[in-house]
């Protein structure tokens, strides 16, 4: 019995010590300069995925300028909805809690899945770090040499394009292209980027609509036909594929995925100084030569690294929400 009591007492003492150690700096921290404790990053996609890598690469350099380290938690599910709901509903709006996501796909999720949080009332993107264009490519052995070939054939029969999932910027791009040119396309979701790419390479479908950077490693197995942007920013990596708007004279929207840092909207009013500190130190990362090195190792071509401020992020988010609403009937099974 004695032994048991000892353990219990010892345990209580340890627990108290722990609380003291953890609690004291927190109280002091309220007065100290921001940030005085570790930053908590919520990632609405899986551990080890593209977003995770991009976040870690960025935060490794950011930590130097911000003076604090970053810790990560992952809440994948429902195309990002789980992560956003957890962030808005269960994370304290104190500027220590950040979310790192991809504006395009996640605003499409927002518009098609009716989550319980509200944009822009609950959450704001305060800075994007890169911009990855949507593309259409075909297998290396495909008979389609240019985007015009594909459009012409699409006027005669329905073209099948693989995609990781329907609610995705590249899907909207292909559907908008079909609207603008009168071609017919049918999007075929494969539930993942890998199987979607394999389907186009092995000829199960005519081509693949996806983000550019994930398809760069395919070499001669893929022939890029066009980029959904006003210019191709990485021509040497994409067999000089034209910008679709230039090649076809269309006015399709720019359908880029922008990976961005987000925060609770209320932080902007409650802690404007903290937000300012985050924004200013974040900008310094782009000029740091170390970032170029780590970003490229994480798989993002340097051409795609591009800072966008809160206003630009907001404009892009709203544009995606509007586009998704426009194509909702084609992107969602709800009648």
């Amino acid at each position: 019995m004695l032994k048991k009591d000892m353990t219990r007492r010892g345990f209580v003492a340890t627990g108290a010590a722990a609380l003291a150690v953890l609690g004291v700096p927190r109280v002091a921290g309220a007065q100290a300069a921001f940030p005085s404790e570790t930053m908590q990053v919520l990632i609405p996609t899986g551990e080890g995925g593209g977003v995770d890598q991009a976040a870690r690469a960025f935060a490794r350099v950011w930590a130097k300028h911000l003076g604090q380290n970053f810790e990560y938690a992952y809440f994948p599910g429902a195309s990002g909805q789980v992560g956003y709901e957890v962030f808005v509903g269960k994370r304290e709006p104190n500027a220590y809690n950040l979310l790192f996501g991809n504006i395009g796909p996640e605003m499409i999720m927002y518009a098609t899945q009716n989550p319980s949080y509200k944009y822009p009332d609950d959450i704001m993107y305060f800075g994007a770090i890169d911009s990855d264009d949507s593309v259409i490519w075909v297998g290396g052995n495909s008979k389609f040499k240019t985007i015009n070939d594909l459009v012409e054939e699409g006027k005669k029969r329905e073209i099948t394009l693989s995609t990781s999932r329907l609610p995705h910027p590249s899907t909207i791009g292909a559907l908008a292209l079909a609207d603008a040119t009168g071609m017919k396309v049918r999007m075929v979701p494969y539930g993942g980027g890998g199987p979607a790419r394999a389907a186009a390479i092995t000829g199960e479908v005519d081509g693949c609509a996806t983000f550019l950077s994930s398809s760069l490693g395919l070499a001669e197995q893929a022939r890029f036909l066009g980029v959904f942007n006003n210019e191709n920013r990485a021509p040497e990596l994409t067999n000089n594929a034209p910008a679709i708007n230039k090649a076809l004279g269309t006015k399709l929207p720019v359908l880029s995925g922008q990976r961005a840092w987000a925060i609770h909207r209320s932080v902007a009013e409650k802690f404007p100084d903290r937000l300012e500190k985050l924004t200013s130190t974040m900008k310094q990362v782009f000029d740091d030569p170390e970032y170029k090195e780590v970003a490229e190792k994480a798989g993002t071509p340097w051409e795609f690294i591009q800072y966008a401020d809160a206003a630009a992020c907001d404009a892009s988010a709203k544009e995606f929400a509007a586009l998704a609403a426009q194509y909702k009937s084609l992107l969602s099974a709800s009648k």
């Binding site: 599910g77 429902a78 899945q113 979701p189 992107l331 969602s332 099974a333």
Partner: peptide, 19 residues
């Protein structure tokens, strides 16, 4: 989520069952 549109089915309202 269904395999074409990713629209959730029979999830009893649990977000955790969307996928």
């Amino acid at each position: 989520a269904d395999h074409i549109y990713s629209t959730p089915r029979a999830t009893f309202g649990f977000l955790e069952l969307y996928d």
